[in-house]
C-alpha cells in the first residue's frame, strides 16, 4: 500500500462545500454514463405537449385568436419543473433502498452534503432539462419575444420553482418505503402539474377547478414566464392572476421555508 491515507484537515465549512460538490459531481456523472435518462425523464412532458399542440391544439381556443403553441410551450416548461420533484424523490428512495444513504451516513463526511448535494445537483439537472426542452420548443415554432434579460429571468423563475420542489421531493422520498411506492407519487404529481394554467387558462375551467388552478404555484410561474417571454398569457382579473410575477417568487420561497426544514428533519430522524 502506497497511498497516504490520512484525511486532509480542513474546516467543517470547507468540507460542507467540497463534499456537496462531490455529490453534485455524482449526479453529473449520471448524465455522462446514461445520457438517455434525460430523454426518459423528459418523455412525459414532450409527449404531452405534442399531444396538446398537434392533437387538441386545433380545437383549443384560448381567446383573442392567440397561438396555442406559444401558449403551451411555457406551460410545458413549468410542468416539467413541477414534475421534477418526482425525480428527486425517486433518487432519494433509490439511495435509501440500496443502502447508499446509510453508507454516506456511516462516513466522516459533512452530514449536510447529502441533502445540499442533492439540491444543487437536481437544479443543475433541471437546467439541462430546460435546455433540451427549449430546443424542442424552438423547433416546434415557439419564440421568446422578451429581451435577453427577460428571457433569462424567466428561466431563472423556472429553476427557482424546481429548487423549491426539491425539498418536497426529498421529504417525500425519505417518507416512502421503496421505489415501487415512489411510483405512486405520480398520483400527487399529475394533478399538481395539470390542474394549473399549464395547458388551459383557469378562466376556461369550471369555477371551483379554476380556483384551485389559479392558486396552484405552478400557474403563477407559468403565467409569469409567459409574460416575460411575450407569449400569450390570458389571465382573469383575480388578485392571484394579476400578481403572477410576485407570486412566482413568493410561492417557491414559501415552499422552501416549509419543506426544507421538514426534509432536513426527516433526514436526521433516520438515526432513530
Amino acid at each position: 500500500m502506497t497511498t497516504d491515507l490520512r484525511p486532509q484537515q480542513r474546516s467543517s465549512a470547507y468540507w460542507a462545500v467540497v463534499d456537496s460538490w462531490t455529490m453534485v459531481r455524482r449526479g453529473l456523472l449520471y448524465y455522462v454514463r446514461q445520457p438517455t435518462t434525460i430523454l426518459w425523464q423528459l418523455g412525459f412532458p414532450i409527449v404531452s405537449v405534442l399531444l396538446f399542440v398537434y392533437v387538441f391544439g386545433s380545437a383549443m381556443n384560448i381567446g383573442d385568436g392567440a397561438d396555442y403553441t406559444s401558449f403551451a410551450m411555457p406551460g410545458m416548461f413549468a410542468m416539467t419543473m413541477a414534475f421534477g420533484f418526482m425525480n428527486t424523490a425517486y433518487a432519494v428512495v433509490l439511495d435509501k433502498e440500496k443502502g447508499v444513504t446509510d453508507r454516506f451516513r456511516s462516513m466522516p463526511m459533512a452530514p449536510s452534503a447529502v441533502v445540499s448535494g442533492r439540491g444543487f445537483g437536481d437544479v443543475l439537472g433541471a437546467a439541462v432539462d430546460l435546455l433540451v426542452l427549449a430546443m424542442i420548443a424552438l423547433v416546434i415554432g415557439w419564440r421568446s419575444d422578451g429581451t435577453l434579460l427577460e428571457t433569462l429571468y424567466a428561466f431563472f423563475l423556472l429553476l427557482w420553482l424546481r429548487f423549491a420542489l426539491i425539498w418536497i421531493g426529498i421529504w417525500m422520498g425519505l417518507g416512502v418505503k421503496n421505489t415501487e411506492a415512489a411510483g405512486n407519487l405520480f398520483a400527487v404529481a399529475f394533478p399538481f402539474g395539470m390542474i394549473s394554467s399549464v395547458f388551459t387558462p383557469p378562466s376556461m375551467m369550471p369555477d371551483w377547478l379554476g380556483f384551485i388552478a389559479m392558486w396552484n404555484p405552478v400557474s403563477s410561474t407559468a403565467t409569469a414566464i409567459r409574460e416575460l417571454f411575450g407569449n400569450p398569457a390570458p389571465v382573469g382579473g383575480s388578485w392571484i392572476e394579476q400578481h403572477a410575477q410576485l407570486m412566482a417568487l413568493v410561492w417557491p420561497l414559501l415552499i422552501t421555508a416549509i419543506f426544507l426544514p421538514m426534509a432536513v428533519r426527516r433526514y436526521q430522524r433516520l438515526s432513530r
Binding site: 484525511p7 467540497v18 462531490t22 459531481r25 455524482r26 454514463r33 446514461q34 462516513m107 466522516p108
Partner: peptide, 17 residues
C-alpha cells in the same frame, strides 16, 4: 449507475483524501 472506479473515487473524496 457509476463504474466501480467512479464509486471508489467518490467515496475516497468523501473520506477527505
Amino acid at each position: 449507475i457509476l463504474t466501480g472506479r467512479q464509486n471508489l473515487e467518490m467515496f475516497g473524496r468523501l473520506f477527505h483524501l
